[in-house]
Design a binder for these strands. Structure first.
Lengths: 213, 213
DNA sequence: TAGATTGTTAATCGATTAACAATC
DNA sequence: TAGATTGTTAATCGATTAACAATC
């Protein structure tokens, strides 16, 4: 028997729920109703309840949801109870920015090393991770239990490197290169296409400009 | 009379069409049918035709689409025929990474300055843009025609800075802080939530792991 | 108990896909 | 002209919202 597949739209919303619940938790809020949360997040209460009920009944009639409990449960759903070892391929500004962002580590994502071809970068430290030469990549993956590789290299090299990474056993790829990686379906690829994000902004700006003309 | 609003799903796909057409253009491809493009992009040909016809009939029966023409038209739709002046608030690694990314400039997005509070950064150059003190922000916006402000400051300061930016006339915000900015609806905000992207990756990884257990 | 709010079913809305006549 | 492929309408599918009985 097949458990109903969770839709992509729902999954996309989960991290945002998690963030809002984390914020409430920091403010020592104990309980919240779907209605209150819906006001804050500007989505319908109905959608919140539908989304959560894909995973289980986390609330209580007449009361609402316990903030701490719901936060923890969504964290589990998102797989945040696991620890993830990350390597970053490409130690340019973006790679360094990712390595330096301490919030990831708080959530259990630990950057183990960066890799680059530039001799000036090799050997330097970014936060607590070393920049290593690409030649050591395969061995490093073999010797360490690496879960995720972030790709921040130029467009042209990204597909080649991705193929290598998969060959060497990487299962999760966080891709920042402006290209779609065609990899076996058992590999999980999450894309961050900054240029496309900027174009969406420019679309909306230029359309608003046209409206007022 | 109201022209039918273009759905968000369609707009989200436009930059990807634009990218694929740009790639084809570089390979000197002259024409492409919705079927061929659908094979490459792994979406249905029907969706491609539907999406494009929201904006006009760019193709020709029996022939398909002229790559160069369609690329240019989508560029116009996305507002890429305009030039955009950008400032970056926060000159940390991420801000510097954005300023250094030359591809944006090629598309008409020019970084005019970065702003930061850190004395070590102030006065330094990132590519062709200077890091200036936050005190000069208001004057700089007044003296230059700034279209977009990228926010790469910590979560706590982001909403305050965003409010100031709006007060000083900024209409477009590219927000990298992990917070939702509640601004007047005439302000266009495009969010890049890296932590949420990483959580989506971890969700999918941990679910695949469970499946094989 | 009475009031509040969930969990869930049913209704609606919107987006995607299929089909095909129009036409290059 | 015959073949190919668009533009567009109609059918299907999926996601969101509304409604309300269940129940804390």
């Amino acid at each position: 028997m097949h458990k109903k597949e969770i839709s992509k739209a729902v999954i996309n919303r989960l991290p945002r729920y998690y963030r809002y619940l984390g914020d409430l938790l920091e403010k020592d809020e104990v309980r919240i109703s779907s209605k209150e949360l819906s006001d804050k997040m500007k989505v319908t209460a109905s959608q919140i309840r539908q989304d959560l009920n894909n995973f289980g009944g986390f609330g209580q009639q007449g009361y609402g949801y316990n903030v701490e409990y719901l936060h923890a449960e969504i964290g589990k759903i998102l797989g945040l109870e696991n620890k993830y070892n990350i390597i970053i391929i490409g130690a340019g500004n973006l790679g360094q920015a990712l390595a330096n962002y301490g919030d990831f580590e708080r959530r259990g994502f630990v950057v183990r090393a960066l890799f680059d071809i530039s001799p000036e970068l090799i050997g330097t430290m970014v936060r607590s991770a070393e920049v290593k030469p690409m030649e050591e990549l395969e061995a490093f993956i073999n010797d360490n239990k690496i879960d995720i590789a972030a790709i921040t290299v130029p467009k042209a090299s990204a597909p080649i490197i991705a193929t290598d990474l998969v060959k060497w056993g990487i299962k999760g790829i966080w891709n920042f290169a402006p290209v779609d990686l065609n990899l076996p379906k058992e590999i999980t690829v999450e894309n961050v296409h900054l240029a496309e994000s900027l174009m969406k902004l420019s679309y909306r700006l230029s359309r608003k400009k046209k409206e007022t003309e």
